[in-house]
Write a protein that binds this DNA or RNA. Structure first.
Lengths: 200, 200
DNA sequence: GTCTATATTTTGATAGAC
DNA sequence: GTCTATCAAAATATAGAC
């Protein structure tokens, strides 16, 4: 009988060369932005020449598209689950906080491109913008329903949406600085601050 | 006696060509980021040729430096006033909210560069980072003093700092979409949401 | 899968005429 | 203050050898 440590097998699984390129590119895009990163930069970070990259990817644009669209679809899927869940609005907001924390911890570098480089998308830019608008609308719906059911204070919902979403979208800037990070603990604390404020 | 409409005189005052370049560049930097904007783009937006820009500015870098450093110094000065004011921590936080709103309304485009393009600074990058760290430390001090004086809940101050500052730093994305905007009203509503949360 | 060599375009910036 | 002309460097991407 063969023994395999599946955890190790999974974590050590050799990344496809394409995925390796995307990971390296994500890191550089986070540091300098898509436009300031050259194919030579990416290649150098991998210890190869720029021309070699083109054996695995078709263009720089393809790298950006992959990073952004897969993240945007992850958020869409997450929001879709939350909408279906039978929870009140406050609980749904807590789920949204957790969704952002989990995705950001999993792909901190990619989140930088999602936030800052989407305007450099070409073919898929309209698709991205649709996903984004739909996500914001679902978020706004949850807030509006919460106001109607008197679970959320009756203030301008756009200000609440903007305030919470800005914080969640900025998580990628802050999470990597926290070495010892328990996602659940962060979700609890952050939800508390966002929902209940800091006033005593 | 000569009559002058000083309001008109001020608002119609012909901008120096240099300031005009900086304004046009700020707008383009906000749309695509510093690296993706070319000197030809800036020139085209002004209806002149790229070479002509160099009669008024020395380099593309100089434009970016001006945009970012003048804003960073504005924030430093604002924070310095707030520190001197004899108010409790909650009132100081409200003043910080107003500071961000006022500066952002006044220079929405520039705020994009301050947030997203500071890493492309050359000579003045260290100076910028010093101002930034000092600003964040002053902010954190106000929160910490508020916790000690039991004006602010006793939670992780970094989470509160991050949450509030992320929202304030994202104002530039949101303010231009609000046509009918009363800065004082926004300050009141936003302070309310940030300080007291949305939970009912 | 990686390399060298290279094509093509675009970039920031300068020189000098008007 | 703006123009045309131009330079030198840097960019994405391809072709073809190994």
């Amino acid at each position: 009988m063969k023994h395999v440590n599946y955890y190790l097998a999974a974590s050590m699984k050799k990344l496809s060369r394409k995925q390796e390129i995307i990971n390296v590119a994500s890191k550089l895009f986070k540091e300098k932005g898509y436009s300031a990163v050259t194919m030579r930069d990416i290649a150098k970070s991998m210890g190869i020449k720029a021309a070699s990259l083109y054996n695995h990817i078709n263009s720089k644009q393809e790298i950006l598209t992959y990073i952004i669209i897969s993240l945007a679809e992850e958020f869409t899927q997450g929001m879709s689950s939350i909408k279906l869940s039978n929870k009140n609005s406050i609980e749904k907001l807590k789920q949204i906080v957790s969704l952002h924390i989990n995705i950001t911890i999993n792909n901190t570098n990619g989140m930088a491109s999602l936030n800052n480089d989407w305007m450099h998308l070409k073919d898929q830019k309209d698709y991205y913008l649709t996903l984004r608008v739909n996500y914001e609308n679902s978020f706004r719906n949850i807030i509006n329903k919460g106001i109607k059911k008197k679970e959320i204070i009756n203030l301008n919902p756009d200000i609440m949406l903007f305030s919470i979403l800005s914080t969640l979208r900025s998580l990628y800037l802050w999470i990597p600085k926290k070495e010892d990070l328990d996602p659940n603990e962060l979700a609890t604390s952050l939800s508390n601050v966002l929902l209940n404020g800091i006033n005593r």
